[in-house]
Amino acid sequence: MRKFAVILLVALVTLIFAQQKLVIWCSEKQVDILQALGQEFKARYGVEVEVQYVPFGDIKPKFLTAAPQGQGADIIVGAHDWVSELVANGLLEPISSFAEINQFFETGLEAFSYGGKLYGLPYALEAIALIYNKDYVPQPPKTIDELIAIAKQIDKEFGGEVRGFIIPATTFYFVVPFIFGYGGYVFKSTPAGLDVKDIGLANEGAIKGLELLKRFVDEGIITPGDNYEIMDSMFREGRAAMIINGPWAIKAYADAGIDYGVALIPDLAPGLVARPFVGVQGFMVNTKSPNLALAKEFLINYIAKKDTMYRIYLADPRLPARKDVLELVKDNPDVVAFTHSAANGIPMPNVPQMGFVWGAMDDALNLVVNGRATPAEAAKTAVERIKAQTQ
């Protein structure tokens, strides 16, 4: 009798699912693989999956308009920093813990968490790392002191024709690994989420990070005018030995014939790792979807699986969010290095107040590298400005 009841339940669930259709909105790179996965899901469960291409920049605003009316996509694919706005508008469904959640990098899960709940299934990470030219640096430095020593030697040997080390000196995103590595933070992380009233960009660790930036300038390794365009073009031209950049830049370096390597940003001190910002892409469920249970089932018991995530990686080769998928691609040293850098990192805050941080901190970096304020003074001014705009 019990066996018959189970069979009846499975048949009933199959019948209900067969009457439903899942709609997914995604950007161009995910369309083909999600269509293929959707066809397989339909063949297995009898549920139609309709994948609709929406330009990446249009997904969130279109969803904000359609979802409150019970329309639009059941699932969207997008960035983790959409979460706060979508949750505030009551449009995202929390995802409960599932069997293989521990296979996902904590950084990815943290990125899609808000108010202590998980609101997205991560599939791809993004972070910066050290990129080095093997013609000048056969083995990457393990510590910042080693990096400085190597950079100085190259500067001296080539008389400025080749730069030992370059970063965009006044761009917060590229200086963050030093600030966070020493213990600075943007907004305090708590079990209930980010505390936007607790800003850690002028604490002792943040000031140490800015002091390191000033050391680079004072010792002639970088200049106040160093920006992304200078860094990127000099590395492509073989005139920079070490830079910090992201996976988006690798193809251009390979096409330019640079014999490059990717490594972790060197430790700030023994056991004190650099911690870059991390961006995360993932799947989010429309809480107003008429197919809510099915949408969650599709993500947790189909998309979240190792084999499926590996196929998504092959179709859209970004840094994998699952640890065991990284094991499958460990023969790609670039992916391994960038992913380990991301695993060390901190997700970009997924709260709207983050919008006020970028300009304030870029201005603070300008003050520091041009000698117009001490690191402590510049950090204090930046935090006061952020607080005035956010609180």
Score class of each variant (00 low, 15 high):
K306F: 11
P352D: 00
L15P: 08
G183T: 10
V83H: 06
I243Q: 03
D255S: 11
T171H: 14
S84R: 09
P168H: 01
N89P: 10
A378T: 06
Q39N: 14
G116Y: 06
E204G: 03
Y260L: 15
A36N: 11
V54S: 06
A36W: 08
L22V: 12
P138R: 10
T339I: 00
K21G: 07
G184N: 03
I199S: 04
M361T: 02
G183Q: 08
L92C: 08
G116T: 04
Y182E: 15
Y136R: 11
L212T: 09
P375I: 02
D74L: 01
D324H: 09
D198G: 09
I386D: 03
A388K: 13
I131R: 10
Y310I: 06
G46M: 00
Y185P: 09
A378H: 05
G257W: 07
K306A: 05
P94D: 04
G279S: 13
K251Q: 15
V83A: 07
D331G: 01
P276I: 03
H340F: 15
E219K: 07
Q20D: 14
G159R: 06
Y132P: 14
G261K: 14
I243P: 04
D58K: 14
T170P: 00
G355T: 02
G257T: 07
P375M: 02
G72S: 12
M234E: 14
F158P: 04
A321T: 07
T287Y: 01
P140D: 11
W248K: 11
P276L: 05
G108N: 09
E126I: 15
A127L: 02
V175K: 02
